[in-house]
Design a protein around this nucleic acid. Structure first.
Lengths: 195, 195
DNA sequence: GTTCGAAAAGCTAACTGTTAGTGTTACGGT
DNA sequence: ACCGTAACACTAACAGTTAGCTTTTCGAAC
């Protein structure tokens, strides 16, 4: 393999970034639905087929960095200090992500997403992927020996918390309120429950 | 208005049903992706535009009766006997729905759905709608005075239960396990919590 | 029974996201 | 210097969806 590092990768990354930047700019200027793929490609000075070799769909142009999101979540589980409880760690991470998404600078993007059914639906499917990745991380932690169903369930609940809090009137308070519920649900799955 | 009851409504319903039946038959025979809209319309002997005046999208053809689902859920909340607790009522309803979906007769349909990313994503968005309807029903019940966030959260959790259980190895046991968690989360939102 | 408004269905022709097929260029490793 | 291949380009098409407009079919008021 010899690590293909070099000009090639840089150029590829630059092309990808240029496409994403151009797309986001056009979408924000004139609306997601009002801008076609052919137009984005022309403005970014690439062929339509090139655009689709970097992004699987038009919606994916908007959620360009969703993999960072996923990684931060799973790392919140795997990078915990020994014996550090799971739920508070996830709460802190979700709190940070919610703050990031509800910041003023991100407002136009989320308004655009909320206004387009296609983008909303795409985001839902992205969330499901994240929930599955999180479930895998939780199930893999030997300190927390829970059933597969319990792991998947808590992962869903945590992703729900993110989604619900983002739409709430007071996002940060909503995170706390929902995590209070999640904490209770998690405690109910303790394997050493007796009587 | 004088209630436009009569032949007109019957014919419209018949056309809709014929389209849905034809579509489902073709999809099951040859695969969802392998059958085009124009083909469904031709086989049902209607124009493509007529098809789209009855169904908003190709995917909607498969989830023809999702409104029944939504109604059963909200009725499980609104039609409870006085003082009947919420969560067990919802658990029974979800249990029934899961049994219905995992029955052998429904297996081919769900296999088709699982195999098509487009259908999976569409189902996710349908679930979100159901969760919102359920949240509204819960928030409207004067016996359960919870915050808007708590209502929405529990509604999401309940829909998650349905979705997770359907995919689990033992669906009915999974419903019970997840509802044990939901019960705990719900108890944590009691408004009269003291100390 | 005739007539009239409106709902339902139809047809044509497009537009838009997406992909297959096929070259062409520019790197990276040898 | 050479070769393999990854990145990009071009054309043309397919599939879902919609706009615009005409025709048919009821329902009801006259």
């Amino acid at each position: 393999m010899t690590v293909p590092s070099g000009r090639r990768e840089r150029k590829k990354a630059a092309t990808r970034q240029k496409i994403a930047d151009t797309a986001l700019r056009l979408f924000l200027e004139r609306g997601y639905d009002a801008v076609g793929i052919r137009e984005v490609a022309a403005e970014a000075d690439v062929a339509v087929t090139t655009l689709f070799s970097h992004f699987a769909s038009k919606e994916a142009l908007v959620f360009e960095q969703d993999e960072d999101f996923e990684q931060r979540l799973t790392q919140a589980v795997t990078d915990r200090a020994p014996h550090e409880p799971l739920i508070p760690a996830l709460r802190n991470e979700i709190q940070a992500l919610v703050r990031h998404c509800t910041a003023d600078s991100a407002a136009p993007i989320w308004r655009m997403i909320d206004e387009s059914p296609a983008l909303r639906r795409y985001e839902e499917s992205v969330r499901l992927r994240h929930a599955e990745a999180l479930a895998t991380a939780i199930a893999a932690d030997p300190e927390l020996s829970r059933t597969a169903t319990a792991s998947r369930t808590i992962a869903r609940f945590v992703i729900d918390a993110y989604s619900l809090a983002r739409e709430a009137a007071e996002p940060e308070a909503a995170v706390d309120e929902i995590f209070w519920m999640i904490e209770a649900a998690w405690e109910a799955t303790r394997p050493s429950r007796r009587t």
